[in-house]
Structure formats: structure tokens, C-alpha cells
Write a protein that binds this DNA or RNA. Sequence first.
DNA 1: TTTATATCGATAAAAATATATCGATAGGTG
DNA 2: CACCTATCGATATATTTTTATCGATATAAA
Lengths: 218, 218
Amino acid sequence: MVAEKQVKALSERTLRRLPRYIEILKRLKSEKIEFVSSNMIADELGLDSIQVRKDLAATGVTGKPKLGFAIDELINGIKHTLNWDNQTDAFLVGAGSLGSALLGYKTFSDHGLNIIAAFENEPSKVSGIINNITILPIEKLSDMAFRMKVHIGVITVPIDQAQHVADMMIEGGIRAIWNFAPIHLKVPDFVIVENAQLSHSLGVLTHKLAESLKGENK
Amino acid sequence: MVAEKQVKALSERTLRRLPRYIEILKRLKSEKIEFVSSNMIADELGLDSIQVRKDLAATGVTGKPKLGFAIDELINGIKHTLNWDNQTDAFLVGAGSLGSALLGYKTFSDHGLNIIAAFENEPSKVSGIINNITILPIEKLSDMAFRMKVHIGVITVPIDQAQHVADMMIEGGIRAIWNFAPIHLKVPDFVIVENAQLSHSLGVLTHKLAESLKGENK
DNA sequence: TTTATATCGATAAAAATATATCGATAGGTG
DNA sequence: CACCTATCGATATATTTTTATCGATATAAA
Ligand SMILES: NC(=O)c1ccc[n+]([C@@H]2O[C@H](COP(=O)([O-])OP(=O)(O)OC[C@H]3O[C@@H](n4cnc5c(N)ncnc54)[C@H](O)[C@@H]3O)[C@@H](O)[C@H]2O)c1
Ligand SMILES: NC(=O)c1ccc[n+]([C@@H]2O[C@H](COP(=O)([O-])OP(=O)(O)OC[C@H]3O[C@@H](n4cnc5c(N)ncnc54)[C@H](O)[C@@H]3O)[C@@H](O)[C@H]2O)c1
């Protein structure tokens, strides 16, 4: 009965804000600041300080009256909450232009993700190496995922291949899929899918811009 | 007084779901289906049919009892709501690995975005061409944005350059920024910032996976 | 033509999320 | 040492978002 310190349930909204706090906290830390108030964080990010305190409460870290939160403790607490304090191995499928950019991005290791291999369809790409990550033939995906107990899969293949790749991942025991293809994947309940779909964010942008410009021209 | 058909206000949540509807609708259309019920869409995406109806109502498109919604009309209505029925010119700054992937992605034109030029710091990259888009020296950014009345800027430079680039964009009259750098940009009220930050989505994934695996090991 | 029913869309209720209020307290100030 | 104040964190309120209920209606079948 090794009960973790009981923290309040984390809403998805809170979860999405936590990385933003880390961003600010790291900067303040580099400026040698040791304590930060919820107000300061809120100001930096354009949020409400009560909301910041609630979010932080969800990580289990507590502050001190008059002082605020200890930055180091807070960074660690948030990272722990996100499971960013240890890396989870992942496979990426589809070393095309987007996939290659992701393979080359070193910062993911700070965010709990360790891409240990990539897989490809295209023979000419197989055996290539990007950022020390080898590209393997797609046929090996399921077996290797299973043997190496890899739990995260990143999908960067074209839309018409995405469901098929997801199925292979699940067959190999992958439990969480980070999907960049603009398609709704059908997966069993125990598989977590997180869509990183740029078009959703782009839609918000184009809509708001149109509204804003409309208002302007009378 | 050319009043547009009055539609209900669009919440950000709704706005983010609209592209998903388009995705489904396009597929159904390719299967020669002409009408679709809110229930069918909801099933495809794992949503609630009432929510789908509410979202669609926000686009101003109405359905018919017993039949549902006319797919073509619905696609057009959603595109119009997102302002995806015409393209807005954009500049991209930072033709690195992520920037290049975006420059090469043809599908953005279906999503209202037309990247007409890219800008770079690095002399060796200037004058390059990716997907027919020329890479220009960063010094020209503000002037050209102003002269060409470009309203959207895409930021794919390293974190420490992002605020500076944003400032140059705003100086050039850019009104909406699609930001890929993991930093909170400070901009005037009239500028719209939409963050396409992968770490937010990754945090949700790593947290949920950890919870899920924890539950499993008793 | 009449009837049955799938589906919409308006209104109402419930749930989730954000914001406000306020007492408690650590630490600085006189 | 006693007081003042910034800040936390618990509780309460307000707002937003989701989900439920139900009457209206267009189509298809009887
Ligand atoms: N490039 C972007 O900026 C961008 C932006 C948003 C979304 N996306 C999405 O990301 C995905 C990839 O885009 P991209 O531009 O990198 O495309 P891409 O064509 O450059 O890369 C796709 C890669 O997947 C490989 N592939 C295809 N089928 C495969 C299979 N069955 N198994 C293994 N590998 C396979 C291809 O060989 C190719 O290398 C697409 O779904 C796209 O819609 C891309
Ligand atoms: N690569 C990824 O997968 C990935 C994922 C998530 C976020 N990001 C973010 O996207 C941004 C770009 O990442 P990247 O991997 O493409 O980096 P990169 O180094 O490959 O590209 C950055 C480019 O910006 C250019 N640049 C730098 N300063 C500039 C300036 N002042 N004006 C014009 N151009 C300038 C550089 O010459 C370079 O070509 C970073 O902020 C990164 O954190 C990247």
C-alpha cells in the first residue's frame, strides 16, 4: 500500500498548462530567482493567479505564504506529474519530412520521450540514420515493440497508412500513440491516442484572424 | 448593412472540433454519400451527437429531420466558418528542419493558409527554394510584410529568437502568429497568437500513459 | 392519404472549469 | 516583540461546456 501523496485529479486543461509553467520557471531559474508567486507566473502567461495555484496544487507541491513556491521544487513536481522525470522509449513510423524533423529534435528527451528507432516503408530510406536513430523496415515494428516493451508510438505516415500503422503498433503492445496524421484513429479502449494535429490549431487562427479583420473594415 | 447570416458565437472548443468534422465528411463524400446525421458523425469521432449538432449549428448550416445534413453544404459551411474557403497569405520564418517540413506540406492550402515566402538568418540558406517557396533574408521581413499586406506569420526559429521575430512581424503589420517555438510570446492585444506546441500534447500523452501503466501493475 | 419514425433544434439540467472571497500564516518592519 | 502584509489554499460562486429531454417536421411506408 505505497500510496503516492494524494493529489487532486488532473483535468486535461490543467495538464496542457503545466508545460507552460515549466517554460517560465526554467527562465526564472536561469535568472537565479529561487521563489516565485502564483501571481508572477500568471502575469507572465496571461492567466489568472487562482488558476495557477489550482493547477500547481494538482502537482502536490505547496507554496509558502509571503514567499510563493520554491522554483526547483516546482519544476520537479510538475515534471513528475507529467512523467517527464524519466524517459519512456518510443518508436516513430514514417521518416518523411515531418518525421525526420521530429527525429532530429533533441528537446523531446526533456519531455519524457526517447525515440529509439524509426520504421519505414520505403526501401531507400531503410538503414538510414537520423540523429543517431536507425531507420528499420516496417515489417519489424510489431515484433520489436513487443520484445523491447516499447509503449509509445509516433505516427508520421500519410493519412491512408495511419490506421494500418496504428494497428501494427497495437499488435506490438504499444499503449499510447502520438498521431500526426489528420485522421481519427480507431483503437481499443486501453490505448491512449493523442492527436498532434496542426489543422486544429490552424483553424482557430484563420477563424480568429478573419473575425478580427472583419470587425476592422467597419 | 450586409448582415451575414447570424450564427451563434463559436467557442474555442467548437472551433477545434470543426476540422475533424471536415475530415469525416470528406471521406463520406468520397463514398458518394449525400446526407449524414449528427449521430453518424458522432459515432465516427467518438463524440456525443448533441454536441455535434450544436457545433454544426454554430456554422449556420441546418439539417433536415429524418435525413440529416447535406454533406456538401456542411463541408462548405464549416470551411466558411474557419475561413478555409479562401487562402490567406503567410510568411514563415526559420527554414530549419521543422520549418522546411511545413514549407513542403501542400495540404495547408486546403486549410486557408498560403505560405508565399520564407525568411532566414543563415546566409547559406537564403535564396534556397522549398516547394516553390523562396527563402529570403530576414532583414526584408518587415518591409515586405507591410508592402504585401501579409497578415499571418509562422514562427519556426529557435526559442531565443522567437520573441524578436514576433516583434519584427508585428512591425510589418502581421496580425496573426502561428508559433511553434516553446515560448509565450508577448504581443499587443490586436495580435492573435496560436501556439502549435507539441510539448503540450506530449505532456498529456506521457501523463496518461504513466497513469494507465501504474493502474495495471496493481 | 394517413401513420410511423428518424432526426433536428430549442430549451433545460448537469458537469466541468474558471473566478471570487476570505481566513491562516510566514516573514519582514517598526 | 507586536504588528503589517503578501501570499497561500480552502471554500464558495459564476461561467462555460457538455449532456439530457422533448416537441416539431420531413420522409417513407402502410
Ligand atoms: N509535413 C508537415 O508539415 C505536416 C504537417 C501536418 C501534418 N502532417 C502529416 O504528417 C504525416 C507525414 O507527413 P510528411 O509531410 O512527413 O509526409 P512524407 O511523405 O514526407 O513522409 C511520410 C513517410 O512515411 C513513409 N511511409 C508511408 N507508408 C508507410 C508505412 N506503411 N510504413 C512505414 N512508413 C511509411 C513514407 O515512405 C514517407 O517517408 C502525414 O499524415 C501528414 O498529413 C505533416
Ligand atoms: N524540430 C522539431 O521537431 C520541433 C518540435 C517541436 C518544436 N520545435 C520548435 O521549432 C523551432 C524550430 O525547430 P527546428 O528543429 O526546426 O530548429 P532548426 O535549428 O532546424 O531551425 C531553426 C532555423 O531558424 C533559423 N533562424 C535562427 N534565428 C533566426 C532569425 N533571427 N531569423 C530567421 N531565421 C532564423 C536558423 O537558421 C534555422 O534554419 C524551435 O523553436 C523548436 O523548439 C521543433
